[in-house]
């Protein structure tokens, strides 16, 4: 685990619990797999609003440690909202560690506000299912898009009720904002 040093070195002070909550994903993924036969696609991403100045230094630093990793591979994409997507291909533990390290790097460079969400892609009965981690609220919520602009509420509610004891889930459904056209 190449990112271990990054993941543990925290400067967020009292947020110990929140930072560890993303690491609880490993067991949550197992639960999802056992209960619903949901499969993690080994694809995850962190979505960050692009900025100027030292942002490119932060991005370079991230590229630096991502490219020397043997466990994961990565790619970077932009979208029409001006966000960059750092897409990680790799197993749960490695992906979570990588995403946490990326977030930490951007926070260190002073871009905490720019971090939007971490997204994890699953396959549920051949349909797309995502788990979104909102960095502002530090909570997870499910997102099951059908077609281009519809959502499968039943699946989302089911995933929510299965995970709510394990993860820091967003209880207020009015904050379950979709992210349409996720490139995963």
């Amino acid at each position: 685990m190449i990112f271990k040093g990054w993941g543990i070195r925290k400067k967020r002070g009292g947020d110990e619990k929140d930072s560890s909550s993303i690491f609880r994903l490993t067991t949550a993924f197992i639960t999802l797999n056992i209960r619903l036969k949901v499969e993690f696609k080994d694809l995850s991403a962190i979505c960050i609003k692009e900025a100027t100045g030292r942002f490119s230094n932060a991005l370079d630093s991230v590229k630096g440690f991502l490219s020397i990793s043997k466990e994961i591979s990565y790619s970077i994409k932009g979208d029409r909202y001006g966000y960059i997507w750092i897409i990680i291909k790799g197993m749960v533990e490695d992906a979570v560690a990588a995403i946490d390290a990326i977030a930490d790097t951007f926070i260190e460079y002073g871009f905490e506000e720019q971090i939007l969400a971490a997204i994890f892609a699953f396959n549920y009965k051949g349909k797309r299912l995502y788990l979104i981690y909102n960095y502002k609220s530090k909570r997870f919520y499910p997102f099951a898009p059908i077609g281009s602009r519809e959502r499968d509420y039943d699946t989302e509610m089911l995933v929510y009720s299965i995970l709510k004891d394990e993860l820091n889930m967003e209880n207020d459904v009015s904050k379950w904002y979709p992210i349409w056209d996720i490139p995963l």
């Binding site: 909202y81 939007l116 969400a117 959502r151 509420y153 009015s174 379950w176 979709p178 349409w180």
Partner: peptide, 13 residues
């Protein structure tokens, strides 16, 4: 049902 939002998170941000 109508409380689950349709607006994209990035638009809301």
């Amino acid at each position: 049902m109508s409380r689950i939002p349709e607006r994209d998170l990035r638009e809301v941000e």
